[in-house]
């Protein structure tokens, strides 16, 4: 309602004086331009502030441990970059195991989530069956349940089936992401039915329709769910922190959190480790910027 009021209010003086619109338009044009420039300046200042923590971590990681221990002024003053911290982390070797654990768990979880969630979404979007409302309700319920809160019973369950300290203990609990089913269902609902009806008349079974008609049309949403699941599993701390206690199996955030204390004053090494944990995600982000941002907005707006 306010929207319709706004333009009308200043309108009356303008329409009263016939030659007025042109100068007014010009004035608005220049003030729009000034506003644009001011916006750009303010934003640039804040963008730089926003980049400082990451850049400071990078600068620290490229300093000598001795310099880093002296504090921020010394780190900023000292211009003598060295890759020593990175080299020593890779030589120590733990980080390779952590990368492996993070990579394996993230990739397998993303693959299983995409396959199972899209299959479930196909049934919910395309097939008529008794209990479909119940299944849909279960999905909506699943979106509302925060899995973090289930850490205690999930730990008990994994212990009961002897899966603690395996990669599966990190993978399995993260597969049933109800939000992924919802994202797939929304996308499938938008695919015209004519395409699969043609395939069905030609005798294609349900699996064929799903696998050869629906899924090839769904590449953008598959990419979004793969990336979001990958990032989510890679970044998860709570679950792997409690289900993995073997240092060789730890994912990279858990490994870092665990050894952080034993690093003591080796601040350059700690910052190098922190950045190495993020490096694959930074590369992923630079490569798939659009998909990641769209995926985040899509899941945010719907979930």
């Amino acid at each position: 309602m306010a929207i319709t009021d706004a333009p009308r209010r200043p309108k009356s003086p303008i329409s009263g004086a016939a030659p007025a619109p042109r100068p007014t338009g010009a004035r608005v044009g220049t003030s729009g331009k000034t506003f644009g420039i001011v916006s750009a300046i303010v934003l640039t200042v804040f963008a730089i502030i926003w980049l400082i923590p990451s850049l400071f971590a990078l600068k620290t990681s490229l300093s000598d441990n001795g310099v880093a221990a002296l504090g921020a002024p010394e780190i900023l003053k000292n211009w003598n970059p060295t890759l020593h911290s990175y080299a020593s982390l890779f030589q120590a070797g733990d980080i390779w195991n952590w990368y492996l654990a993070s990579g394996i768990t993230s990739v397998i979880t993303a693959a299983l989530t995409v396959l199972f969630a899209s299959m479930a979404a196909f049934a919910l979007s395309r097939l008529k069956f008794r209990g479909s409302n119940l299944a849909l309700l279960a999905i909506l319920f699943g979106i509302m349940i925060p899995t973090q809160v289930l850490i205690i019973p999930i730990f008990q369950e994994l212990g009961a089936v002897n899966l603690l300290n395996t990669y599966w203990s990190v993978i399995f609990p993260q597969v049933p992401a109800a939000i992924a089913v919802f994202i797939f269902k929304q996308f499938f609902d938008g695919i015209p039915r004519e395409l699969e009806e043609a395939a069905r008349i030609d005798g294609a079974g349900l699996w064929k329709v799903y696998w050869s008609v629906i899924m090839p049309l769904s590449r953008p949403v598959v990419a979004a769910v793969v990336i979001l699941t990958f990032v989510g599993v890679w970044n998860n701390l709570l679950l792997p922190l409690f289900v993995l206690s073997n240092p060789n199996l730890m994912t990279i955030p858990v490994g870092l959190a665990t050894v952080q204390g034993s690093f003591g004053q080796r601040y350059a090494d700690i910052q190098a480790g922190a950045l190495l944990a993020a490096l694959p995600l930074i590369i992923l982000y630079l490569a798939f910027q659009r998909q990641i941002v769209e995926g985040v907005t899509g899941s945010g707006l719907k979930g």
Binding site: L112, L115, F116, A117, M119, A120, F122, A123, L124, L127, K128, F129, R130, G131, S132, A135, A138, G142, I145, T147, L150, P153, I154, E157, F172, P173, V175, P176, A178, V181, L206, Y210
Partner: peptide, 24 residues
């Protein structure tokens, strides 16, 4: 379709029951 639908739902449903609904 009914049977087919439940087969499509089964893998996700199994994980849903085992690691979401069950623990809750």
């Amino acid at each position: 379709e009914g049977r087919g639908a439940w087969l499509f739902l089964a893998p996700f449903g199994l994980f849903y029951i085992a690691f979401l609904l069950g623990p809750a």
